[in-house]
C-alpha cells in the first residue's frame, strides 16, 4: 500500500544543508535527484529539525526559510519553531 510522504526542494546551494539534515534525521529517506530538483521520499513520516540544519549550516536557521527552496510536498504538515513534520496517519 502506497504510504510515502515526500518533500521536493530546488537543487541549489541553499537547499544542501536542508537535504543533509533530512537524510541525517530520517533513516528511511530516499533521495531522488532530477534536473534542477531533489525529491525525498519517506514512508509515513519525515521530519526536518532546525537544530540539525543549524549544525550542517554552521549558523542560525529559521525553519520558515524553507519556503524559499521548497518545490512541493505531500503529507499532513505540523510545523513549529523546532520541527517541520510531514506525516500520513493511516
Amino acid at each position: 500500500m502506497p504510504e510515502n510522504v515526500f518533500i521536493a526542494l530546488q537543487n541549489t546551494p541553499e537547499a544542501q544543508p536542508i537535504i543533509e539534515a533530512i537524510v541525517a534525521d530520517n533513516d528511511n529517506a530516499v533521495v531522488n535527484e532530477s534536473p534542477g530538483m531533489v525529491k525525498i521520499d519517506c514512508p509515513k513520516r519525515l521530519v526536518l529539525r532546525r537544530e540539525t540544519v543549524e549544525e550542517k549550516l554552521g549558523q542560525e536557521f529559521n525553519l520558515q526559510d524553507i519556503h524559499l527552496t521548497l518545490i512541493s510536498l505531500s503529507g499532513n504538515i505540523d510545523e513549529d519553531e523546532d520541527e517541520f513534520v510531514l506525516h500520513w496517519d493511516f
Binding site: 500500500m1 502506497p2 510515502n4 500520513w88
Partner: peptide, 11 residues
C-alpha cells in the same frame, strides 16, 4: 498518482 496520490486518499 499511483504512489503519492493514492497515499493521500488512503489518509
Amino acid at each position: 498518482w499511483e504512489e503519492n496520490g493514492v497515499a493521500l486518499f488512503n489518509d
